[in-house]
Design a protein around this nucleic acid. Structure first.
Lengths: 161, 161
DNA sequence: AGCATGTGGTTGAGCGTTCAACAAACTCCG
DNA sequence: CGGAGTTTGTTGAACGCTCAACCACATGCT
């Protein structure tokens, strides 16, 4: 572990950046989530899943792959898919070729929910994030975030407790 | 609201940035939280509160002010402080001069918990975020995040449902 | 003073997440 | 083949957060 004094503390300005980052992500995620819920009865995690499914051949993805794509635990995806299934937005299918495999499939109803929700979401992302940065700044943001991901997402699989 | 077609979708590269951002924040927050919990039985939200209290005169802040600083709802802060109180890390005091006011106070024990936890947290922030960016990039990050906050945090008060 | 409105803080129910434990199916090597 | 070890997905309890309702005090208007 760490002894009592060998830590390199954050400087004044680094701290300011870090606190802005914390505040911004809190406000941003809360807001996007709330917007989606109010307008379409859909949470952000649910929305992310719909997006991935809709982009995939057959509108279906295996549970583990889905979890990896959105960086959620397998357990979390199980629960989320269960809720989505109850709403008739998604359904489960046995994966051919692997007895354990389960693939989530987007229903037609689910797709139409997504089509409507996407407007709300994208407008939010634009207004709350994209518009606050110049294209150059936005690129920098992307590069840094990508590095954070590849650094933290060892072996492409999220927290598997 | 929005009609069916007037939405300006995100371009290929904007989408990549946005997804990196989502993934990075998910992984980053999860990891910092887990590190703190494993080493010090403290969640990120709890830690944030301790930091603010420790920086404040008398190591005490009023509930609403605390909520505003860390961008959480008043209700959320109430719950978090209740848990911290049970752990003996914080205690509640009636605010003089306002019959309704309650201020949270950091106990000595709480302060010593914070002293130890800070190492873990700061090392994490450095390793997972600061080190992945050049100083210039990090500044850009800070500027953009600060703008997001001031844009979303109208009236300095978080989501008051 | 007296009533309306606003603010500070709490409460409890319900939802969503984590975590640890588990079962079933796959892999691979002796 | 057969059994150890891994991967996939689920489960249920415990925890944390949100939301709406609420009480108590404060403020402002007439």
């Amino acid at each position: 572990m760490e002894t009592t004094t060998d830590t390199q503390w954050l400087g004044e300005s680094q701290q300011r950046v870090w606190r802005s980052f914390l505040g911004a992500t809190t406000l941003l995620m809360d807001r996007l989530d709330r917007d989606l819920r109010n307008a379409h009865d859909l949470s952000m995690p649910e929305y992310e899943i719909l997006v991935r499914l809709s982009e995939s051949p057959d509108r279906s993805i295996r549970m583990a792959e889905l979890a990896a794509q959105i960086m959620h635990s397998r357990s979390r995806v199980t629960h989320t898919i269960t809720r989505l299934e109850r709403k008739g937005i998604v359904l489960r299918e046995q994966a051919a070729s692997d007895g354990r495999g389960v693939t989530a499939v987007l229903t037609d109803h689910g797709f139409s929910v997504l089509e409507r929700a996407a407007h709300t979401h994208v407008n939010g992302v634009r207004a709350y994030l994209v518009e606050t940065a110049s294209p150059e700044e936005f690129d920098v943001l992307g590069q840094v975030m990508a590095r954070v991901v590849s650094h933290l997402d060892v072996n492409g699989t999220c927290a598997t407790p």
